[in-house]
């Protein structure tokens, strides 16, 4: 019998993870919603970001989450470069080709990491935030609380950017109709590039936060990619709110699977939910269209 308190604490843990997943998935959702680019390499950027955070943390002896100050701007630039080199040529290509190219990109990133770091997992040995905080009978990891808080703040910031700023308006206008947007004086190419850069920058933020307690191996990206896509499928491109709600659901599902079955089955539970979702709500839980 599993004690109720264990279930509750695992669910809270799942909610905290869910916020982090939402942060990573938001970039994917923005990219997919705006330019219809199917990026299967999204999670692999999280993996590269995690290695980068680990290297910086080891060199400067700071908590990996602090390294986001360097990795996020760097990843924005990397995102722009990847957009120019790989994404721009396949804009509007048939989905199969898009997926193929980004799967290829993911393979490249994964196996570069494998060649450099080999398969053993790496983690920061002295994380400053990896201590427990007792809230009544429940113990929470400080690092996860910080990650969740930063994720939530970033999600709100992007929500504000999308709904209240001129650039956000340009993004929404372009995703509503990319033929008409240029007629309204929107530089669509620039919007695409910046949003792709932003999406990749968010993966670096997620990765740096994750490394405060997590460990990275070359295959970390695959699970983040699939999780992000499941969140996007559930969110149904319903903006930041849809992504946030789906991220929390996925986080809790994962925690429940891990609690009631075994930790190795937690992903299977998420995918099973995704499978059922496609059966019953193919346009997502929070679809507007």
């Amino acid at each position: 019998m599993i004690e109720p308190i264990v279930v509750v604490s695992n669910i809270i843990d799942g909610l905290l993870m869910g916020l982090l997943y939402s942060l990573v998935a938001l970039g994917l959702s923005l990219i997919f919603g705006l330019m219809d680019i199917i990026n299967f390499a999204h999670g692999d950027f999280v993996m590269i970001g995690a290695y980068l955070a680990w290297i910086l943390a080891m060199n400067f002896m700071v908590d990996p989450s602090v390294t986001a100050l360097i990795t996020v701007p760097l990843f924005f630039v990397i995102g722009l470069a990847v957009y120019k080199a790989v994404i721009e040529p396949i804009l509007g290509a048939e989905p199969l080709i898009q997926i193929a190219v980004t799967v290829g990109l993911g393979f490249v990133l994964q196996n570069i990491a494998l060649a450099i770091f080999h398969a053993e997992p790496r983690s920061y040995p002295a994380p400053a935030l990896n201590f427990g905080i007792n809230v009544g009978p429940i113990t929470l990891t400080a690092a996860k609380l910080v990650a969740a808080a930063v994720s939530l703040a970033s999600l709100l910031l992007i929500h504000y950017m999308l709904t209240r700023t001129k650039f956000g308006l340009a993004i929404r206008a372009t995703s509503a109709n990319r033929m008409v947007a240029p007629l309204m004086g929107i530089n669509v190419g620039k919007v695409y590039a910046v949003v792709f850069g932003l999406g990749i920058a968010l993966t670096a933020l997620g990765a740096a936060l994750y490394m405060s307690w997590g460990q990275v191996n070359p295959y970390l990206g695959a699970s983040f990619s699939l999780l992000s896509w499941v969140i996007v499928a559930m969110g149904g491109l319903g903006g930041v709110v849809g992504v946030l709600a789906s991220g929390l659901i996925v986080g809790v599902l994962e925690a429940l699977g891990s609690t009631f079955i075994t930790p190795s089955a937690r992903m299977a539970v998420v995918y099973l939910a995704f499978f059922l979702l496609l059966w019953f709500r193919p346009r997502g839980l929070f679809a507007r269209r």
């Binding site: 790989v86 040529p89 396949i90 290509a93 080709i97 898009q98 193929a100 190219v101 799967v103 290829g104 990109l105 993911g106 393979f107 490249v108 994964q110 196996n111 570069i112 060649a115």
Partner: peptide, 12 residues
């Protein structure tokens, strides 16, 4: 790694 590069080249 080679497969990945091939896939990108062929796709683009």
């Amino acid at each position: 790694l080679i497969y990945g590069i091939l896939l990108i080249i062929v796709g683009i």
